[in-house]
Nucleic acid binder design. Structure first.
Length: 728
DNA sequence: AGCACGCCGACT
DNA sequence: GTCGGCGTGCTC
């Protein structure tokens, strides 16, 4: 701040809206701000929280200049974090204001948490008359500590009016109790795990890295059950010992309660959680305590990357291949990559862990940008399941069924041994397509033209792309014929029906992300399964994610081919990862276990890779294939998302882009039907896949597209989606 | 992203 | 006659 200026100083303030640069605000004479300060500023008709940014404030017409209304009593956002925001904005081609907005997502946290009112015994004061109730209270409070009124009443077994009576006599004085930390401090020496030789070597290497102030990326590549978590916990311990905060990113943390337990066993306390299901109050407290440095470890979903850490010294990204790390609205980013960048900016190590690493991380490791540590054997006596394909052309299911006799036979055996079976089918609902047997009418979404999926339990037809739904009709809307609608293909509901028919006495549980009762119910069901309260589990991809099912010795993949033919360049990789993860759920206790893949293409590279366990060969092949096609992970523009009302309009954008960029690349338009993306207010998001362009050209593309390209009514919103190989 | 302003259809 | 739909435009 300049002292000599008679005018009030002007500072840049990043406001939470799509502004391309910070806005300028006047600082009142008696106000002190510094870069990073969180301030309240007037913006149009309202007031918002913004962050004082770096550099001198830009000159702005005096008439427009408004003054900061208040500075929040909150630790300033660190310089590292501000550079991170700028970097993410420039890399994702989003307005920095929108990135800053992700950081300001806990509005009530900017003011300090109000201390709670406590009561403490005043020395030498006693009550006028001593009753039995009063005596108990005096005894409890005799330790000289401050108590909350309700806490003391509860502990002494009296009503709070007894306490109130004593307080009005002056026996108690009112003191303020500082807010209690959300979780206890983790103790790096608490529950040291016993590690196998391979694990110990990996842990030592990670400890070495996490014990220094230097950026590095380490990829821990270990089969499911090889103890990756225990190994990276040692890196966490090393960072904690250095007095650093630690961030552990986990996809779908709301469902991963088991992880919190394991952390607790190792560190004697739970980590703080951060995800979108967090209650607002808790959310604020986590944000605040991270900013103050009270919380040392946060386990969170991708948005935890934007928490205001002040002493961050390690990021672990578990299941780094998981597509849930990719945010595909507003600011498009992949938290795995932005995590690496955060480590680079902060000068600290980053650890990526996965049993099925993404191609791009593997390429980065092969080229020496990341260090790769392989954990090749399963922990203790946990054995990998035997894996085999079931050729559905030879072992076809009975008419009307979807389970091959081969699989049914194994389920019978498993049931007889009192062990659990898992049937995996990555498709929610009852049937993916409904048609009229009389006229051939197919039920389609009126908003986005994909097939409506029947949800029989709910009695609805639902669009899985945009959420449109209608009650399932009795008659065909086209020809009016009653009772001739037929469900085509299976979903988990239909498989559950088949299982109930085949095994009427077995205890079955169906797990699906759209299940009634939400996350809470899912958690309970998962717990029940772990306790062995079910024999057969039928589930969508959520069963592939990190749960331990100790009694599970059979995994059947109902349709292993699903997802291979959807036009996504990552289809094979994704399918491989999903199948490897889901079959890895079996045999965790060392019992002999089996995984069966029902497929019509047993010779497909994905099936071969799963059955032979040769992930290396598969990845090499896939990498070469991508390189030939000019696709990611080779550092090129992957996709532009345009918002358009129709496919024709999206094609128009694509033509404009082709014209605007003469060196241009091939552009494919993927509509909502092929690329499931959110549909907003009647407009659809189309993905323009651009082959072979360099990222440095993107800015130009977009400028030209917006300037010279066809502009069919309304705003053209363009977003960039990049799967990079290297981005530092 | 919010939020106001502004111009056309079904109702207290 | 008004309530209310979302299209367009602006925010230091």
């Amino acid at each position: 701040m300049t002292k000599d200026s008679p005018m009030s100083t002007v500072v840049p303030v990043m406001v939470p809206m799509p502004a391309e640069r910070p806005y300028s605000y006047a600082v009142p004479e008696d106000m002190r701000v510094e870069p990073g300060s969180i301030v309240r500023v007037p913006l149009g008709p309202r007031e918002v929280a913004g962050i004082v940014w770096d550099g001198p404030g830009e000159a702005v017409a005096a008439k427009r200049l408004r003054a900061i209304s208040a500075v929040f009593d909150c630790p300033p956002i660190s310089e590292e974090m501000r550079r991170f925001v700028d970097w993410v904005a420039s890399y994702t081609l989003s307005p920095p204001g929108m990135v800053a907005r992700m950081l300001l997502r806990a509005p009530a946290a900017f003011d300090p948490e109000p201390p709670t009112e406590g009561l403490r015994l005043v020395d030498g004061m006693g009550p006028d008359r001593l009753t039995a109730a009063r005596e108990r209270v005096m005894e409890m409070a005799g330790d000289g500590q401050a108590w909350t009124r309700a806490g003391l009443a509860h502990a002494a077994g009296v009503s709070s009016s007894v306490i109130e009576g004593l307080r009005s006599q002056g026996v108690f004085e009112t003191v303020s109790i500082p807010p209690r930390p959300l979780v206890a401090a983790p103790d790096p020496t608490f529950g040291r795990a016993t590690l196998t030789d391979g694990q110990a070597a990996a842990a030592a290497r990670l400890r070495e890295k996490a014990g220094t102030d230097a950026f590095s990326v380490t990829l821990i590549d270990g089969v499911t059950g090889s103890g990756k978590t225990e190994v990276y916990f040692e890196a966490v311990a090393a960072a904690l010992e250095r007095g650093k905060q630690v961030l552990i990113l986990i996809p779908e943390i709301a469902l991963t309660q088991a992880f919190l337990e394991r952390f607790h066993n190792r560190f004697g306390a739970k980590p703080a959680e951060w995800h979108s299901d967090l209650a607002p109050k808790k959310r604020e407290r986590v944000w605040r305590q991270v900013a103050e440095g009270q919380l040392r470890v946060v386990a969170g979903a991708r948005s935890a990357l934007f928490l205001p850490f002040r002493e961050l010294g390690l990021i672990v990204i578990d299941e780094e291949h998981d597509p849930a790390y990719k945010q595909e609205d507003r600011v498009f980013y992949n938290a795995r990559d932005m995590g690496v960048v955060r480590g680079h900016i902060g000068g600290f190590p980053v650890v990526l862990a996965s049993a099925t690493p993404s191609l791009e991380s593997r390429v980065n490791a092969n080229q020496g940008r990341y260090e790769r540590i392989v954990l090749s054997s399963r922990f203790a006596d946990a054995a990998l399941p035997d894996l085999a394909t079931v050729d559905m052309r030879k072992a076809a299911p009975e008419r009307g069924g979807f389970l091959s006799p081969v699989l049914i036979e194994e389920m019978k055996k498993t049931l007889a041994r009192g062990e659990q079976s898992l049937l995996f089918l990555n498709r929610r609902g009852y049937a993916p397509l409904t048609l009229c047997r009389v006229c051939g009418h197919r039920f389609q979404c009126p908003d986005c033209s994909s097939w409506l999926v029947e949800h029989r339990f709910r009695g609805q037809l639902v669009c899985h792309h945009c959420g449109y739904n209608e009650p399932r009709p009795e008659a065909c809307p086209e020809c009016g014929t009653l009772d001739h609608l037929v469900a085509c293909g299976p979903g988990v509901e239909r498989i559950t029906e088949e299982v109930d028919r085949l095994f009427p006495d077995a205890r079955t549980i169906m797990l699906s992300s759209d299940m009634m009762g939400g996350v809470k119910r899912l958690r309970l069901e998962l717990e029940a399964i772990e306790k062995g309260e079910a024999d057969i589990i039928i589930g969508t991809q959520l069963v592939a994610k990190g749960h331990n099912f100790p009694g599970m010795t059979l995994v059947g993949v109902v349709d292993a081919d699903l997802g291979l033919a959807n036009g996504d360049p990552r289809a094979a990789e994704r399918t491989f990862q999903l199948l490897a993860q889901v079959t890895g759920r079996a045999g965790r206790t060392g019992r002999k276990s089996l995984g069966l893949l029902q497929t019509y293409q047993p010779e497909h590279p994905v099936m071969r890779a799963i059955v032979t366990g040769d992930a290396e060969a598969f990845y090499d092949r896939e990498t070469a294939e991508r390189e030939r096609a000019g696709l990611p992970p080779f550092g090129r523009l992957a996709a532009i998302i345009v918002s358009a009302a129709t496919r024709m309009e999206a094609e128009g954008h694509a033509r404009g882009l082709r014209r605007a960029a003469p060196q241009a690349p091939e552009i494919d338009v993927l509509g909502p039907a092929e690329a499931p993306l959110a549909v907003v207010a009647g407009r659809h998001r189309f993905r323009l896949l651009v082959h072979g362009a360099r990222r440095s050209d993107i800015q130009g593309f977009l400028r030209d597209l917006l300037k010279a390209g066809p502009k069919p009514r309304g705003s053209v919103r363009v977003q960039v989606d990049i799967d990079p190989q290297s981005f530092l």
